[in-house]
Design a protein around this nucleic acid. Sequence first.
DNA 1: GGCCTAGTTTATCGATCGATCACCAGAGAT
DNA 2: ATCTCTGGTGATCGATCGATAAACTAGGCC
Lengths: 228, 228
Amino acid sequence: MNRKTPAKRARVKQRRLSADDRRSEFVTKATELFAEEGFGGGTRALARKLGVTQPLLYRYFPSKDDLIKEVYRKVYLEPLEIGWEKILSDRSRPLRMRLQEFYEIYTDAIFNRKWLRIYLYSGLKGLDINRWYVGMVRDKILTRILRECRHDAGLAAQGRPSAAELELAWVFHGGIFYYGVRKYIYEAPVLEDKAQMISDALDIFLAGFEKMAEVATDRRRAPIKVVG
Amino acid sequence: MNRKTPAKRARVKQRRLSADDRRSEFVTKATELFAEEGFGGGTRALARKLGVTQPLLYRYFPSKDDLIKEVYRKVYLEPLEIGWEKILSDRSRPLRMRLQEFYEIYTDAIFNRKWLRIYLYSGLKGLDINRWYVGMVRDKILTRILRECRHDAGLAAQGRPSAAELELAWVFHGGIFYYGVRKYIYEAPVLEDKAQMISDALDIFLAGFEKMAEVATDRRRAPIKVVG
DNA sequence: GGCCTAGTTTATCGATCGATCACCAGAGAT
DNA sequence: ATCTCTGGTGATCGATCGATAAACTAGGCC
């Protein structure tokens, strides 16, 4: 048994790709695999998705961990190409409209099964890249939103938002983010009209912020704390 | 080499526990292990945490999956013993106070590393118990909150909340939930005063809801949609 | 004391994991 | 047609996984 050459199981015909193509194909399919299975997904399952054998992976990546890092880079950096700051800071348009547009675009980029699952898996691993992303959201998005809100409400500008204000923005942002989690991770029924969800959430947030701004103004720059 | 009996590595002295104690010890330590490592955590690592050998696990659980199910049951059901409905529905107290108290108690129960991590891991696995929990939050918490808010705002009661209203409550709830994720999963700096965070989030939510209620009342029971 | 039961360990199996090696084969250059 | 470079395969290693069977032992009972 087990003769030398003949009767090798019907090989589908070896198709060759350029090194670059093969490499990026590995990353793409690895993203899909790890999104579903977590980073415990096997290298053999990955190779099967490409229609190649498992050792081929190690022609392109020194180890599985290096492949994973590449997946991180692609997933985290890919949706960041858009000019967010410009949308949020363009004061020639009403704040309400800017926020609506920003969150529609932002959620278009990250609300999909692949992105959200990779993001949560990497968050659970507690990696630096996740901390970096959270810091990016805080500095590039929430801080900017708060600055625009304060300007819109006639409040004085401030270097950095207070911790309480920032927390407020986080709760708002997290609420929208959680919509994606419910839809694509939990696969729970959600309000299908995403733009409507964003619009409603903005109504709540802006109405609440304005009210707090009034109180703060009345009190001549008292802290925004509103005790219940 | 490898003689028969002698020189067996210093056994710490076999300590025997009752079946019940050992079993619950397995579940407790498994919860800790799986919270950190995910459900891919090994049975040998688990045994090491108990100071026993790995096959002992199979005296108490037919398979690792059965142990995992037990962990689910414990984690999901344990924090549900409290009388939530009563707190939310006791109309002799101001709504604001009820909501504040409820969310303080609720987050006391689930805002810890163990619970949140197990919850997210199980959510990523897409298990039925996760769907059940999400449905429970919707029916037992959010629906009730909305009912009380409508009553408080002088709006007519309705059998079930509209999809848009429910979404609103979800965004609010998810925002608070995400505070726990940021703190205990991402380990990001957050506003340390949790009660303050809840209070601020409630200010925003209630102010927004009231404003929408006014609009809805003005329009004589028009849909709550408020277009921006 | 001796015994018996039940909690625990030792040894081990088969599957699967990431990783390495030698070798094969397709396509452009000569 | 042959050479050569390189994308790709087959075989396999050691570690680790969940799980099983048999042997051992602690501790209550007579």
